[in-house]
Structure formats: structure tokens, C-alpha cells
Nucleic acid binder design. Sequence first.
DNA 1: CGCAATGATTAATG
DNA 2: CATTAATCATTGCG
Length: 350
Amino acid sequence: MDEQPRLMHSHAGVGMAGHPGLPQHMQEGGGATDADGRKQDIGDILQQIMTITDQSLDEAQARKHALNCHRMKPALFNVLCEIKEKTVLSIRGAQEEEPPDPQLMRLDNMLLAEGVSGPEKGGGSAAAAAAAAASGGAGADNSAEHSDYRAKLSQIRQIYHTELEKYEQACNEFTTHVMNLLREQSRTRPISPKEIERMVSIIHRKFSSIQMQLKQSTCEAVMILRSRFLDARRKRRNFNKQATEILNEYFYSHLSNPYPSEEAKEELAKKCAITVAQVSNWFGNKRIRYKKNIGKFQEEANMYAARTAVNAANASSHGSQANSPSTPNSAGETGSPCGKTTGFNMFSGV
DNA sequence: CGCAATGATTAATG
DNA sequence: CATTAATCATTGCG
């Protein structure tokens, strides 16, 4: 409903309802004369233009060429340009630069953080985020556990990149195609650069909305993978015998103060091939469980006490130097050694 | 299967 | 932020 009323009154006889490009000079003159012939002429032309899209390609091509060479073509073209000039104003300013979509930014950020859209997987900065809990100085032990996760993640990444590239390529192809088409058409109808730009931006918008969907689903996949991975982490695996030996040894030889320092934890972690966090977990569990039922651990306590006592005896009697440098017990509660029950001050209780 | 042991997670605490 | 205490979820053994 946006036609200009001032143009409406003119074209009565021609079957060109609503076409804004109708020139003014065809009045419904009474007599069939010179003007009438021209009117008929222009009417024909317009009719042909209007119906050109209904024809077969070859036919249309021929017709187009004919129209292009028509003597009236420049004049009509000018009229079209003029009208377009006026009407295009109403279109302009409708849509300005859109602000960056916050949703899209969120997705981008997440993909980046997850290492999907970042740089190629190298040092495993992606896995670093996943293995954040297991950071510590001791690396290269949990890679086996995370390999599954990383493999799946990189699979997702690969799909993501492939799709992204595909979309980008398709977008470019389509854009150039449309631009060529518009350029071609600009010979027969007025097309401003502004319009081309607008068209291109529309195309880009469409394609980026597709990309958005891709990112969305990628994010979902990563989230699912992540939750599965966390669940998998919950699926614990018992430490091997040697590791528990080492941990227990430390625990019972520091029974009065079983709180390894950060350095000690790192040392233990390295020796046990586990992470510092796992060492902390172990000591946390051990302390609470020991305190909860000392009797149950008595046997174990004696055993390790005896072991360390033997070690100490070996070390001192042989004057050896092969002492383990890893456990330089500053506090030798083994001082009152072979004594069975250990009177500790672990807590207020006891 | 039941059950204890055990590593990991979580809320509370100072 | 490190620990505690409770709890979850597996594991491993009889």
C-alpha cells in the first residue's frame, strides 16, 4: 500500500496496474493519433518487460536483447532510475549496522574457551582447561585418561571447522553469484551500489544465522562430552599398590602431623604418578578415616611403623647414604618407635 | 549379590 | 584457600 497516488490517475488503459514507472504522457486522448501510437508503443514495451520472467530462457533472452536495443530504452531507463531515486529513500535507514549478537558472542567465547575454535591443538591448551583440576607441576600422567576426551573433542573441532569452511565457501560463492547477477541486471534496471551492498549483507546475515546454528550445536556437543567426561572422572580407578605404599608410608611416618606441605605433595605425586589433587584427596580421606576408626588401622599403622623403623635402622647402622631424600622427616615421631599404639594429637579427641 | 574399601565430589568451616 | 565431614559412585572380594 505504498504506491504514490499522484501517479495513479494516469494509466487507465494499459494493463500495467500499479507500476510506478509509468510515464506521465499518456492521457486518454479522444482521437487516435500520433500520441496514441506512442502510447501503444510504450505499453507494449512495458508489457513485454512485465512478462519476460514468464517466458522460457531462450525466448526471454531474445526478448531482452530486443528490448535493450529498442529506441525507447534509454528514456525508460532514465525514468526508472528517477523513480527509484525517490523510492529508495524509504528503504534506506530501515536497518542499520546490527550490534554484535550477545548470544553469538557467548557461543564464540565458549567455543574459544573449550579450544574448539581456537588455534590448532598443539600443547593441548584445550586439554589444559579440562584438566585444570589436575594441573600441578607433575604433568604427563593423566594424558591417558584424557585421551578419549581429547580425541572426541578434536573430532568435534574438526567437524566444526569443516562445516564452517563449507558455509563460508558457500556464502562467498553465493555472494559473488548474486553480485554478478545484479551487475548483469544493472544494465536493464537501475541498481545502486548501496542496494548491492544491502543484498550482500542480507546474504551474509542469512549465512551467519546458519553458522550460529552450527555453533550452537557444536556447543551442545561439547557440553555433552564434557558432562560425560566429568562422569567418567567419577569412575575412579584404584591407585596401584606401589602408590598406596608410598602414601601410607608418608602418612604413618608423619602420623602426628599428617599434613604434607605443597612441596611434599608434589614430591609424592611425582613418585606415585598421580596428581597433587589426588594426593590431597588421599590424605584428606585417610586422615578422616583414620581418625574415625583408629582401631581398624592399627595393624596397618604398626606395619608401616615397623617398615620405617627398619629403614631407619638400616640407614643408621650401615651408615649408609642411600637414604631416601624424598622424605626428610623433620619430625621423627618414629622417635618413640616400636611402641605400638601411637598417641597422637591429630585432633581434640583421643 | 552384599558389603567394605576407596577415590572423588560437595557443603560447611575458620 | 586448605580441611573436614558427609556423601556419591566404583571397585574388588567373598
